[in-house]
């Protein structure tokens, strides 16, 4: 079954004279890790936020596991979907444990189950439970905070995870570690992940398919290999070219 299906979805924000997302259609199978790549203002975040109904489309249908989300209470949709953003969005007044248990609490899990789940999740994202669970977000580094954000999104083992440039504000070394861990987690959980980024290396490294967006439309949606071999349209070509130029730059300096 398809995890996510978009059919002719468009979105225009009030007081703008263009569509942020223009009649987009695509299908994503369960268990895929799809990266959405594009420059700022291309509509990638808008597209992502329509999946958990932070925005509602003006036209078209969004179907998750056979269910049109227009017919489901947004609050219910959101509790089924993991959500991570760049700024981590951790609650500064809650301990790490309370942050991670946000959705389990909303769903009224019993305390013991919450705590056990929190312990497992912290282990999964590489944070020592005893050391960190009572701390507050500001006592953690940016990378650690983002790990907590990831654990929090994974809390109720959602079938779909939405990630909006989650590693965008993290230094290069930590980012590579987090990318590897996300891949590992994805292998273990078989979740369907939509991952927005403007970093072409990240997009091609993580995605088993890459969706390239420009001006509200999807230019290419294919495996990294296919996109690199046959970029197709001009925008995708220039993207791939820029990544290759960068690599050339590194090589020149090394040799």
């Amino acid at each position: 079954m398809n995890a996510i299906t978009f059919t002719n979805v468009s979105k225009q924000f009030p007081k703008t004279n263009y569509k942020a997302v223009k009649s987009v259609s695509f299908e994503i199978e369960e268990g895929e890790l799809v990266t959405i790549l594009g420059s700022s203002g291309c509509g990638k975040t808008t597209l992502l936020k329509m999946v958990n109904r932070l925005y509602d489309p003006d036209e078209g249908d969004i179907v998750l596991f056979g269910e049109n989300i227009r017919d489901v209470d947004p609050v219910v949709v959101r509790r089924r979907i993991g959500y991570v953003i760049q700024q981590s969005g951790l609650f500064p007044h809650m301990t790490i444990e309370d942050n991670i248990s946000t959705v389990p609490k909303l769903l009224k899990w019993d305390r013991k189950k919450q705590q056990e789940r929190c312990r497992n999740l912290m282990e999964l994202v590489g944070l020592d439970y005893e050391k960190f669970h009572k701390r507050y977000p500001h006592e953690l580094s940016g990378g650690q905070q983002q790990r907590v954000g990831l654990a929090r999104a994974l809390a109720v083992n959602p079938k779909i995870m939405l990630m909006d440039e989650p590693f965008g504000a993290i230094d290069a070394i930590n980012r590579l570690n987090l990318q590897d861990e996300l891949k590992k987690i994805h292998r273990e959980t078989n979740q369907t992940i939509l991952f927005v980024t403007h970093d072409i290396n990240e997009a091609f490294k993580l995605g088993n398919r890459v969706m390239i967006m420009n001006e509200g439309k999807i230019c290419r949606f294919d495996t990294p290999q296919n996109v690199i071999r046959q970029p197709g349209d001009a925008f995708t070509q220039s993207l791939v070219q820029s990544a290759m130029d960068q690599e050339k730059f590194w090589r020149e300096y090394r040799d």
Binding site: K49, V75, R78, Q87, G89, L90, T102, L106, R152
Partner: peptide, 18 residues
Amino acid sequence: ASPFTIETAVGMGMTKRG
């Protein structure tokens, strides 16, 4: 509260009241 904090609260399925 920072807009990102609010956004994640809503995005995770907190009601307006919550």
